[in-house]
Write a protein that binds this DNA or RNA. Sequence first.
DNA 1: CAAATTACTTGCAATTTGCAAGTAATTTTT
DNA 2: AAAAATTACTTGCAAATTGCAAGTAATTTG
Lengths: 141, 141
Amino acid sequence: MKRKKKIEFRSECPISTALDIFGDKWSLLIIRDLMFNEKKTYGEFLDSEEKIATNILADRLLLLESTGIISKQKHPDSKAKVLYQLTVKGIDLIPVMVEIILWSERHHEVHPYAKQFAKMMKKNKEGMLKKIRNKLIVVID
Amino acid sequence: MKRKKKIEFRSECPISTALDIFGDKWSLLIIRDLMFNEKKTYGEFLDSEEKIATNILADRLLLLESTGIISKQKHPDSKAKVLYQLTVKGIDLIPVMVEIILWSERHHEVHPYAKQFAKMMKKNKEGMLKKIRNKLIVVID
DNA sequence: CAAATTACTTGCAATTTGCAAGTAATTTTT
DNA sequence: AAAAATTACTTGCAAATTGCAAGTAATTTG
């Protein structure tokens, strides 16, 4: 499984461009784990509830890196590990992710934590957004 | 090309659930055309800039209908036409779509209208959201 | 220093996509 | 009123992508 060198943008429509990057069933789940679940390594992404296949994970990490949404760093604990993190471009996806969560919570049966999340968002959206962002701010891109 | 009767939800995570519905390269483009481009018929969806294949379009319209995001109505002008429209659940995707547009505009080269859109959003987001919503409000679901 | 762990690759089979060419029911044109 | 367009799809098939199981190579642990 080798991925295309360059991703092709189908048009200059902002929605289309975004979908060219993360329009699939898995990319936003990796971003979710980085953004909300403090996951940082290949192994941690692998053991999600949705059971992403290891080759797909490798492919998507490459894609997200090549589109500037995540970056690889040295893991402080071990040479055998790789630390993945969101770049600023990735962190900027917070409002997208939050609105997806709020929509899904409103229209589907989801985990209780999502209902809690929606309630807190209703109280103070700006504050919550900043709080999430502050937790992710990072030195190197 | 026959589609699976039922879509399978991989987990109760709100992001995952949303992706099970619209996590592909085309669904949100149909929603975009309904939401922002006043498109309403099969033929209109077909002639987008991104050139969706006709079998894929048929498949996605069915999927969006079965998940309650769009609905089919009689076309007032002709029996040969079908009128598609967003349901309330579909209209509720406005904030998701808007945040995707804003993110994409911020990080990519996109159509000039998107820059204009971003500028207006910055001025008065709540007002804009309401305006978009009002244009879509509909009698039958 | 042998067994785990970590981050991937590789080899297929199965599914999905994309393209070209129908088809069936209207609607328009002549 | 027949013939030609239009509209909303379907069908067949090749090509691409996904998903599963089984490696591999470099650390790290017992």
